[in-house]
């Protein structure tokens, strides 16, 4: 269980980074949408793609946490 929790800390920290990143993306996209409502659709698509890319980075971190131990098994 101790091994698992170390991975969990790593995953949690990665989640913080991803959270900040996705928050920034959402902020930027919303500001853009507010300024240019006609570009909403374009912005939304790009926002989702960018968020997925950032999320992937967080998941890289999770995978790296997995590399070292067995997910608590």
């Amino acid at each position: 269980m101790v091994v698992g929790s170390v991975a969990a800390i790593g995953a949690g920290l990665a989640a913080i980074g991803a959270g900040i990143g996705i928050g920034q993306i959402g902020k930027g996209a919303l500001e853009g949408m507010a300024r240019q409502p006609e570009a909403t659709n374009d912005l939304r698509t790009n926002m989702i793609v960018a968020a997925a890319l950032v999320e992937a980075v967080a998941l890289f971190a999770v995978v790296v946490s997995l590399l070292g131990n067995n997910l608590g098994v």
Partner: peptide, 20 residues
Amino acid sequence: LLAVAFSVYICFFCNSSFAQ
């Protein structure tokens, strides 16, 4: 951001060394 990145980094090192 740097602080977070660094902590994450440190954490991985802990992980791998522990797992070894």
